[in-house]
């Protein structure tokens, strides 16, 4: 083989190896923060919590139904505003196969119960006292809503309050079986 050609090949191989290493460094550094964030289309992490009525609620039991998974806290104002919409549509869509599951983050049982009573909430509410579910869904600001399709995929993620009933209705329609 021509020596010049050989040199070109050797250089190309070395540069390719270096480019690969540099590329990998970029990739892993830039995705470091994103890696643990859930995205649309991801499998919704399964969890199990006990609701205020003492019943065990496991997400995977809802397979075949759409789920409106809402994380909230009693001190959070936007959470208070979206609750009436949720309550109204929960009743309306129950027969259409979409269920609401609310996960309280940070409150005591007393506060959660008082809150549910004050707003007349009938959908199941569970308290994530160990914050494990909150961590699994990597939630910092409240409220956060995950729309989960009947096959357990995340269809939509909404961070922040849902102000209008129409907004909430669109979300419900998205995960109708």
């Amino acid at each position: 083989m021509n020596k010049k050609k050989k040199r070109l090949i050797v250089r190309s191989i070395i540069l390719a190896v270096l480019a690969l290493a540099v590329g990998y460094t970029f990739y892993s550094n830039l995705t470091k923060e994103e890696r643990h964030n859930l995205r649309k289309g991801d499998e919704a992490p399964d969890f199990v919590l006990t609701d205020l009525a003492g019943e065990t609620r496991q997400l995977s039991d809802y397979k075949g139904k759409g789920v409106f998974l809402n994380f909230w806290g009693s001190w959070c104002d936007p959470c208070k505003k979206e609750m009436p919409h949720m309550e109204k549509l929960a009743k309306e869509y129950k027969s259409q196969g979409v269920e609401v599951l609310a996960v309280n983050v940070g409150d005591s049982e007393l506060q959660t119960k008082k809150f549910a009573k004050q707003y007349g909430l009938t959908f199941p509410i569970a308290i994530d006292s160990t914050k494990e579910v909150q961590d699994a869904y990597n939630i910092t600001p409240l409220p956060a809503t995950f729309m989960i399709s009947p096959d357990g995929k995340i269809e939509e993620i909404v961070i922040g309050g849902l102000v209008k009933e129409e907004q909430v209705r669109t979300l419900f329609d998205k995960v109708k079986p």
Binding site: L18, V22, T25, F26, N29, L30
Partner: peptide
Amino acid sequence: YNSIWFIGLIAAIGVSLVICSL
């Protein structure tokens, strides 16, 4: 340490080290 161009600089130093040495 997490900004793209800084990682790029460090990576370029690494590449330079390998090629200069060889």
